[in-house]
């Protein structure tokens, strides 16, 4: 049976979307700057081939994707599109952000070892912004869990099959 938003009132649905979208929106600038710094690392001789840079880059891209996808889904729903797997999509993107958030620090610690003094400000800025991004991800998930209640965990269990597909 498809999980839908049909059992909710329009107001409930809207407050859910507004709250989560507002939280993710707060993180957009941070993720944009982190992506730009990560690309810049590809031009810095001491870091460009550092162990850890590829998985760090992939994690940063995963996070960027997750923010965009979740916001895109919310926009589609708000425009009245009926998406039968909407809840699965949102829980999947938000819960995958949780996994990426756990990966970002250890991956970045590997990269950091190769930084020279002239790049330390980029390293420090990345760390600070990654911290902000982590808080925003956790806040979005808390909201999702609060609004979906026990259904969050049921859906999360279902989407684990897809999460288990390797993402490199």
């Amino acid at each position: 049976m498809n999980s839908t938003f049909f059992e909710w009132t329009a107001e409930q649905r809207d407050s859910y979307f507004t709250a989560i979208d507002a939280v993710l929106k707060k993180g957009m600038a941070a993720k944009e700057v982190v992506c730009s710094i990560t690309t810049g690392f590809r031009s810095i001789p001491s870091i460009r081939t550092a162990p850890g840079l590829n998985p760090y880059h992939a994690t940063v891209a995963d996070i960027g994707y997750g923010f965009d996808a979740a916001r895109g889904t919310i926009k589609r729903l708000r425009q009245g599109e009926s998406i039968s797997l909407a809840k699965e999509m949102l829980v999947f993107d938000l819960d995958t952000l949780r996994i990426s958030e756990k990966q970002i620090r250890p991956n970045f610690e590997l990269v950091e070892n190769w930084a020279q003094p002239d790049t330390s400000y980029l390293i420090e800025l990345s760390k600070e912004l990654n911290g902000q991004i982590a808080e925003i991800i956790n806040e979005a998930i808390r909201l999702g869990q609060a609004i979906l209640g026990p259904e969050w965990e049921i859906i999360r269990t279902r989407i684990q099959n897809i999460q288990a597909i390797p993402r490199l």
Binding site: A29, K31, E32, V33, V34, C35, S36, I37, T38, T39, H57, A58, V60, A61, D62, G64, Y65, D68, R167, L168
Partner: peptide, 18 residues
Amino acid sequence: RAASEISYGYAGMRGCIR
């Protein structure tokens, strides 16, 4: 993976402009 890099490229461009 390719899709995530598209999102990453746009975000990076905006980060650079900022």
